[in-house]
Design a protein around this nucleic acid. Structure first.
Lengths: 207, 207, 207, 207
DNA sequence: GATGAATGAGGGTTCATTCAT
DNA sequence: AATGAATGAACCCTCATTCAT
């Protein structure tokens, strides 16, 4: 009779922050609801007041991470620069995002739980990769229009560029085969990937 | 005569087959030893006569899958063909392997359990990807020597080619975003990936 | 007002009572956590909310029995009485304690699990026998000082008196060689043991 | 149709030797039939050809230990010596037996499993303590007859003497409160125990 | 007669979820 | 609305016992 709101956004954020910590430590299976509650500084019961269950909480966590952290990539893109400079800049942001602690964490968990939560992977893909690919394709289309590239299918090429950014470093980090890579390794992946892409999609006779 | 008592290979295979089924259904965490035993048609106790525990069984399963299925890729490579034909042929085998039921299953589980079993990811990488990349790099080096390609760092380029093979299709299947893709989609990924690669690494003035 | 939530002492007592029943029936190994839970009228999970595990629960049970039941022995000792009367009174209490259901139970379990839980035996000895022996030695020293006894080493003599109290009856009950002994058998053990002790440690020319 | 005997005594001995090793390492519960079989150098199946089950094997082991090792105590008793010398000699053998590795082991196991195998404790008591007490009582009776002692109830006094031999050292070793005691500690227990006994049961005015 | 692979009930323990407070 | 004690199903694993070879 007294309060005003059943679910305060601050508490929800508090819970999701705790979940982020807990999931980061042990993945989906390794993070118990007790642990999440402890990390969030709330009771276990409160978890269930805000989320229907562990699955639901996990999905909300992934969604927030995707929308909050994974989609900043295309902000501040300066398209007045050359295609190479633009792609290098974006490529580096993609790589940074993929090799970030939370980027790796979410990727691992989404892949891990794909069979159990098919809808989670879809939500993740929609919130993250799909949007990023869409923005990238638009950009490639504009560069083709301006004669800097000759890409017949920008959507497909965007996926190729994304794939190239994952060569060597991302692939290995996802499997935990290394704790981290030096900066210049990341730079090289971006540089060589973008280089291959530009040479492969260069306008005929262009340069 | 004592026959061949103790740890018959057939029973081991039977158990690993059961494990494959169980792991395919629920991943590592989702497959209980009881379920694996049921799938294999043996008792729970027998599992422990053949393997020291769940981790051990899982590792044996991954090892078998890697060595039995993932390493056939470079057999029958006809290097007398053109670089393009050779790469297309290999690329298609790579993709087929990655999108196969067991290829996806193992990838998901290795990534999922990376934190818990770091050594598993290493064993997997050594048994599968690392060898494949090595063979691929040798091949690229030979094609560079024969003037068909101009690749300065074959090892790196091999990783790029591998990455390109994972564009669009493999990425999505790993997340369960689709059950399968039509043949021509797979072909296109290979064709466009190899095409980009060949154009990007073509010898100067070559054609 | 939050009352006294978390780990109510009553429930802890309830669990320990259940444990007493279960341990009494099957000893440490024979009492499964399921059985203990059933005896206590709680769920198995609750056991783990109150105790870290079976060992912990067992140790708590032993501790409670020792402190609650085994240490009342020296209350109400009337040292103004003769040495004989005092020792008879205490001897009878010692015997009663040792032949009690819980006295036998704990002795059996401590001895049985000595290899597995060396620290438990130490905790038990400190909580029970050691204290009792200490009190007894002090008493014997006072009786020596007052000329009623001539005991050179009270600590050692206390252990001898304890040992004498275990002749015939306690020894057999510990092995389950009899369900119980009649009162006068217990009395006799005390009487003859104290008699031997008094005669053996009588002051020279005394008696 | 060929052999002669179904159960060879040597194999039975071999099994019991293995059982002794295994039980010594882990007690009754801690010794698995597999481990016993391994220690004995036979197969698990053979165990069941010679003994009906684990309980049975354990009982046989205890019986053999009692009859083979615990009953040598009264051999070589030189009753022509003084009562004191005789009792000191026997007392020391009693203590040595009780504090021996196998003496402690069996005591612990008999006490531990008393509820599960009541018949085992009886078998043990008959094979060991009862016989020893009987021999001791006869000896005490002879010493009373010869005027060296004045013991009204030799059977009871024998149990008291036994009890005194267990003061301090045996009691603690049984609980694992010490790994071992120095020789002179054992000697002292015997000396002081026998001394108390002799003083307490000395003939009136005798010496 | 000896073997040891196979069995499966039962062990201790964890944890998502519920509900009285 | 928030709490956390209580629940109980399910987990991995052990081991006494059996039986085909």
């Amino acid at each position: 009779m007294a309060d005003q709101e059943i679910r305060s956004p601050e508490k929800e954020r508090q819970i999701l922050d705790g979940a982020a910590t807990a999931f980061a430590q042990g993945g989906y299976e390794g993070a118990s609801m007790s642990h999440i509650a402890a990390m969030a500084g709330v009771s276990k019961g409160t978890l269930y007041n805000y989320f229907a269950g562990k699955k639901d909480l996990f999905a909300a966590f992934v969604h927030r991470e995707c929308t909050q952290r994974l989609m900043l990539m295309f902000e501040e893109v300066d398209e007045s620069a050359s295609a190479e400079a633009t792609l290098l800049w974006i490529g580096r942001r993609i790589v940074d995002m993929l090799v970030s602690e939370s980027g790796l964490l979410i990727y691992r968990m989404v892949v891990a739980e794909t069979r159990k939560f098919p809808e989670l992977a879809e939500a993740f893909y929609d919130a993250g990769p799909r949007r990023a690919l869409h923005r990238m394709a638009e950009l490639i289309d504009r560069q083709t229009a301006s004669g800097q590239l000759a890409v017949p299918d920008a959507a497909f090429a965007a996926e190729q560029l994304f794939a190239l950014m994952q060569a060597r470093v991302v692939v290995k980090l996802r499997m935990g085969l290394a704790a981290e890579f030096p900066e210049d390794e990341l730079d090289r992946v971006v540089r060589e990937g973008v280089g291959l892409f530009l040479r492969g999609y260069a306008p005929i006779g262009g340069g």
